[in-house]
């Protein structure tokens, strides 16, 4: 990669030389030479790493690989086992619930934080850092802090009961029906600061004249944010959503740190299924089958959107 990056400098010189020519209408491919050269590293990475590794993963899901990858043929055996596995099916449901609440929660909360912090408040830098800090810390230990806080015998429930409210109950983390929501809470805590930062960067780019116009027209502030600013920062919202969606699909560390998938298997998630089988359970075949299913699901959800937005319109988004 380093070599590729430095290789861009001569490319830049060529492009500049080409651009500087008197010829006003060079051939289309030539005009694009700079862009094409610049995209070479991307192409190499996509083909070698992403496409290559994805195909490798799919291939292994049809093998009987255990600790080490082997290239034999086991047919659909791993998939048969996968779909007969209660834990994997429950994981799929859990990630659905988590995904909707987490993405929705982070976007709403993150947007609100960005808007409120945009009100020329004092100590903005401190507040922004406070909202972002969970992102900076290893989940192994912050997850433990959450586990303690939510634990009925250590944290909030105990605290409130010690204050004299003997009937107060907050035991979601040990309750199989509710445990997934504790992951949502900690997830929002961890990620909404980032959404705030992305949307704030967007808001700070909105033209000052628009705000002035809104004020002159007597539009209330909340409406100005919702109907003027929000549509303008649409691409930033998309970016934030994709970022959050990636975190949802890869959700693992938080679960391990807070619940270990429990109580029982109540808070298991697909990425943890993959990781457990990939490493601890020495079953690469089953792990890659699960990873393939995750990939297929993601592609099925993303494909129409990617197609509409990026492939069909060959150039800039309208």
């Amino acid at each position: 990669m380093t070599a590729m990056v430095t290789a861009r400098i001569p490319a830049a010189a060529t492009a500049r030389a080409l651009a500087g020519r008197a010829d006003a209408r060079p051939a289309r491919w030539r005009r694009q030479l700079g862009a094409k050269l610049a995209l070479l590293p991307l192409m190499a990475v996509v083909i070698v790493v992403y496409l290559g590794c994805m195909l490798w993963t799919v291939r292994l899901s049809f093998s009987s690989s255990k600790l080490l990858p082997v290239q034999d043929w086991a047919g659909l055996q791993q998939y048969g086992r996968l779909f007969a596995n209660d834990r994997f099916l429950l994981s799929a449901i859990n990630i659905g619930i988590f995904g909707v609440l987490f993405i929705g929660g982070c976007l709403v909360f993150g947007f609100l934080l960005a808007v409120f912090i945009d009100q020329r408040v004092r100590a903005e830098g401190v507040l922004r850092t406070v909202f972002l800090f969970p992102h900076a810390m290893s989940l192994v230990v912050t997850g433990l802090a959450w586990q303690w806080f939510l634990n009925p015998t250590l944290g909030l429930q105990k605290l409130v009961r010690d204050l004299g409210f003997a009937d107060f109950t907050f035991d979601w983390i040990v309750n199989q029906q509710m445990v997934i929501y504790t992951l949502v809470i900690a997830g929002i805590w961890q990620a909404s600061g980032l959404v705030m930062a992305i949307l704030l960067a967007g808001l700070r780019g909105v033209d000052e004249d628009l705000w002035k116009a809104a004020r002159v027209d007597g539009i209330p502030a909340w409406r100005a944010y919702l109907s003027i600013a929000l549509p303008l920062i649409g691409p930033m919202v998309v970016t934030a959503t994709v970022l959050l969606a990636v975190q949802v699909v890869k959700l693992y560390d938080l679960v391990v740190a807070m619940t270990r998938g429990g109580p029982g298997i109540a808070s298991e998630v697909p990425a943890k299924f993959v990781m457990d089988h990939l490493f601890e359970r020495n079953n690469i075949g089953l792990a890659t089958a699960a990873a393939t299913m995750m990939l297929v699901t993601v592609v099925a959800i993303l494909a129409p959107w990617i197609y509409a937005r990026y492939v069909r319109e060959t150039g800039r988004r309208a």
């Binding site: 109580p263 029982g264 079953n283």
Partner: peptide, 19 residues
């Protein structure tokens, strides 16, 4: 037993303990 079976049994035992 294999790590694979050991893990699969863990899933069953933890469910029995907690459900």
């Amino acid at each position: 037993i294999s790590p694979d079976l050991s893990g699969a049994l863990d899933d069953v035992i933890t469910q029995f303990w907690n459900n």
